[in-house]
Simulated assay, not measured.
Amino acid sequence: MPDAPPSPRFRIWPPIAVAVPWLVGYGLERLVGVSLDVGRWAGVVGWVLVAVFAVWNGWCLLLFARHRTGLLPGQSTSALLESGPYRFSRNPLYVGLLALYAGLALLAGSWGALVLLPLAWAGLLWGAILPEEAYLRAELGRPYEDYRSRVRRWL
């Protein structure tokens, strides 16, 4: 059996890093029995954030497909993406996941999920981004270091 190509060794799979704090926050809020009444603006902002996620992450995935590199978190990387959202963020898919998190929390009126948003951010950073950066440095070398010096981690 041939060796599998190298890939990032996540501590936490990114969707899990985002889903667990959301579900815990939402669940604790329901358990306590207190919900967030933020009014109509929350629904509008929530839907805008969900739409931003769909367009932004869809654009990123299209770029992955065009460059024939791993689409899913943890797959091996064969190309350094520097166009589209990758001009603004080294981690636009994770930025999109956090926008989705906030949008869904607002749509659900969940203060518990909103309060735990920093935990999702920290889970992505520690669980996925730091291991992924180490992998990309080892796999792509100097081109990645140059890209890293030009483009911010988040936005």
Rank of each mutant, 00 (worst) to 15 (best):
W154R: 04
W59K: 01
F53T: 07
R90D: 02
G84P: 01
E132K: 05
V52F: 15
C60F: 05
W13E: 11
G123D: 12
L80R: 04
L93T: 12
R150I: 00
L107A: 07
V20Q: 10
P8W: 15
L130Y: 12
E132C: 05
R148Y: 03
S35I: 00
A113I: 03
R142L: 01
W126H: 14
L114A: 12
V20C: 10
P92T: 03
V45C: 12
G25K: 05
A113R: 01
A113W: 03
A102H: 05
V44R: 07
G109M: 05
V32H: 00
A134E: 15
A128N: 10
D37K: 05
F10R: 06
A102K: 04
E133D: 13
V20K: 10
G123I: 09
V48N: 10
D146F: 00
R152L: 12
W22T: 03
S110T: 04
V20G: 06
P85Y: 05
G74W: 14
L49W: 12
P143K: 02
G58V: 09
S78H: 11
W121M: 09
A99T: 05
V38M: 12
G70K: 12
E139K: 14
A42W: 01
G46E: 11
E82L: 00
L61A: 08
V38I: 14
Q75C: 05
T69V: 07
V18G: 10
V52N: 01
S78E: 12
L71E: 03
L130N: 03
Y94P: 14
F64G: 07
H67F: 08
L81F: 01
A42D: 13
W41E: 13
V32C: 00
W41R: 13
E82T: 15
Y86Q: 00
A113Y: 02
E145D: 14
F64M: 08
R68L: 06
G127F: 14
L116D: 13
E132M: 06
M1P: 13
A4D: 15
C60A: 14
R87P: 00
A105W: 07
V48F: 12
D37H: 14
L23P: 09
L80M: 06
L125N: 13
R66H: 07
V24G: 08
W41T: 15
L71Q: 11
G46S: 11
I129G: 08
P118W: 08
W47A: 14
F64E: 06
L28Y: 04
L49N: 10
A79T: 11
Y101M: 07
S7H: 15
R90F: 02
S89K: 05
S149E: 02
E82G: 00
F64V: 08
L136H: 04
E29S: 01
L72N: 13
G74C: 13
A19G: 15
A105N: 02
L61Y: 07
S35G: 05
P21C: 12
A105R: 06
A134H: 10
S7C: 10
V34D: 00
W154P: 14
